[in-house]
Nucleic acid binder design. Sequence first.
DNA 1: CCTACCGATCGGTAGG
DNA 2: CCTACCGATCGGTAGG
Lengths: 196, 196
Amino acid sequence: MARIKTNKDVTRREVITKAAAALFREKGYKAASMRDLAVKVGVEAASLYNHIRSKTELLHDICFNVANHYMEHMYAVENEPVSAIAKIERLIRFHIRQMVENYEEVYVSDREWRHLSDPYLSNYHNQRRNYRKRFTAIVEQGIQNNDIKSIDAATAVLVILHAISGIESWHRSKQKIDAAELEKNMVTILVDGLRN
Amino acid sequence: MARIKTNKDVTRREVITKAAAALFREKGYKAASMRDLAVKVGVEAASLYNHIRSKTELLHDICFNVANHYMEHMYAVENEPVSAIAKIERLIRFHIRQMVENYEEVYVSDREWRHLSDPYLSNYHNQRRNYRKRFTAIVEQGIQNNDIKSIDAATAVLVILHAISGIESWHRSKQKIDAAELEKNMVTILVDGLRN
DNA sequence: CCTACCGATCGGTAGG
DNA sequence: CCTACCGATCGGTAGG
C-alpha cells in the first residue's frame, strides 16, 4: 500500500482487485485460489505478484474501501438537519443502492471479512461495531422523539442491516425486479414497521 | 449413510457432526481442516474416517437435517386453520427459536451450503427455493385478504428471512438479550410492518 | 483408534 | 510477465 505506483500499475491493480472481488464473492475467499484469479485476469499466477503483495491484501483492499465509503456516508447523514426517521430512510436507501451498484465488493466485505488477519481483522471489527452503534443512536433518537415505536434499537438496526444484505438472493435470481421498485418495497416494509 | 452402525457408532458420529457444525460456523467450511476437527473431538485426524466418509458428508448431514426440519414445520403451518398473518408470525417465531436453540447447525446450513457438491448442491438449492415459494404464497394470501400491505411478497419474504438470520450478530455479542424479548421485538418490527 | 504416508493443491519466491 | 519450483497443508488411505 505504501508502494510507488505508475499510472499503469494502478490500473492493472484495480483490474485485479475487481476480479478478486467477483471471484471471492462467487467461491468464497478460502475456496478461491490465486490460480483461479490469474485465469480470470489472463496471466500466470506468479505475475499477479508484480501488482499485489498477497491474497490477504486483496481482501483487505476490498473490505476497507467499502467500509470507508459507508463510514463517510454515515458521517454525512449524521450531520444533516433532518429527523431521525429521515436519516434512517437515507441510510436504508444508501445501503440498498450500494448493494445493487457495487454488489461484489459489498457482498465480500460483508461476508468474507472474517478471513482478514489480525491487525486488520480487529480494526475492521471495530469499525463495524462503531457503525452499528451510530446507527443505533439514530434509532434511539427517533424513539425519544416518538417517531419510532418503543422497540429495542439495537435489534431494529440488526433487522434493517441484515434485511438489506439479503438482497443477494434477489440479485442472484433471474427475475430481476427494478431497483427503484425494490427500494420502495423495502423502505415500506422496514420504515412503516418502525413509524408510530 | 448406507453403512451398518452400532449404537456406539451413531453416538460417536453425532459427536463428530456436532463438533463439525461448531467448527464450520467458527472458521467457515473451507478454512476448517479435518485436523482441526480431530483436535476438537480428541482423536487423530485419520480416526475420524472410521465414523464418517468425508468432510463433505459432514456438511451434507448438517444442511439436510436442518432443511428437513424446516420443511416439516412449513408443512405443519400450511395446514393450520389460521389466518395468513398468524402463519407468518408462527414461521418467524420458529425461525428465531431455531436460530437461538440450534445456532451452529442453522448458521452453517444457511451460510456454508454452497460448498456442497453437485448432486446435493442442486437438491439443497431447490429445497430452499421451494421453501421461499411456499412462504411467499402465504404472504400473497395475506395480501389478498387485505391483512397485509400491498407490497411485493417475494421481497417481503427475503426481508423476513434475512432479518432473522442476522441474529448471529446478536448471538455473537456479549450482551445477550433475553430470547423471548428478542422474539417480541422482531415480530413487532416485522409483522407490524406488514399489517394493514 | 493410531502411525505412517500419499498425491494434490495451495500461496508465494527466484531469477530472468 | 513467464518458467520453474519451494515448503506447507490439505483430504484421505493402508495396514495394523
